[in-house]
């Protein structure tokens, strides 16, 4: 299952997306312009994969794992944004005011107050981003075609199903292996995840 390594390589990227997210959220406090970004975020990948196919082709990146690293951030962005908005809105504004009076600059407030306080949300967003990246199906299916570049999800579907012969045992074993990492992570961080998901719910 060489494909597993390829998709694992995506993971750090994913957490970076998570961190980009919260910065975006902070911006929302200051500038409404960032909101227009949100409309765009809502355009789903299933609408974009065809033009992206052309673009990726032009760039010569077809069948290159790095194309996923480039594209995956767009997958998780809408939901991560949602999570983080909910989370940041649950931080009382007195907290930044207190920090302001205590003498913190804006970058300091972000680093020392916001990020630690919103950590559960950031973790939730990161888990989500990872899960999405790990389980992504459409982009790899469209842009990777050779076995040595395929990620796990595609690998299973493509390599283990040959014509009408289904190696069910192997397929299921692969599925379990594929599902294990997200479930493991999730088991340990479940509470963060749920807290992050629902922080916005009670506000909504």
């Amino acid at each position: 299952m060489t494909s597993a390594t390829a998709s694992a390589g995506v993971m750090p990227r994913k957490s970076k997306v998570g961190s980009l997210e919260r910065q975006n959220r902070w911006a929302l406090r200051g500038s409404f312009a960032a909101l227009s970004v949100f409309v765009v975020i809502l355009v789903p990948p299933s609408l974009l994969f065809i033009p992206l196919f052309q673009i990726v082709g032009t760039l010569g990146l077809i069948n290159n794992t790095w194309v996923l690293v480039l594209l995956f951030p767009t997958l998780a962005v809408p939901f991560c944004t949602w999570i983080m908005i909910g989370y940041f809105s649950s931080i009382p504004k007195e907290l930044d005011e207190a920090a302001l009076i205590d003498g913190a600059s804006y970058p300091q407030i972000l680093l020392k107050i916001f990020i630690p306080v919103a950590l559960p949300g950031i973790i939730a967003a990161t888990i989500f981003a990872f899960t999405v990246g790990w389980g992504a199906f459409l982009y790899p299916l469209a842009y990777l075609y050779s076995a040595d570049q395929a990620v796990l999800t595609i690998g299973i579907v493509r390599e283990l199903i040959r014509g009408d012969v289904f190696a069910w045992g192997t397929i299921m074993a692969a599925c379990v292996m594929g599902a294990a990492p997200p479930i493991l992570i999730y088991t340990f961080l479940m509470d963060y995840y749920v807290a992050g998901l629902t922080a916005g719910a009670t506000k909504g």
């Binding site: 009382p92 007195e94 907290l95 005011e97 207190a98 009076i101």
Partner: peptide
């Protein structure tokens, strides 16, 4: 003068304690 340079301290109604510290 921004708040940090006014040399003041403030106590808020909801205390605004940093929850992670």
């Amino acid at each position: 003068v921004p708040p940090r340079d006014r040399d003041i301290a403030m106590v808020f109604q909801n205390y605004a304690l940093y929850p992670h510290m």
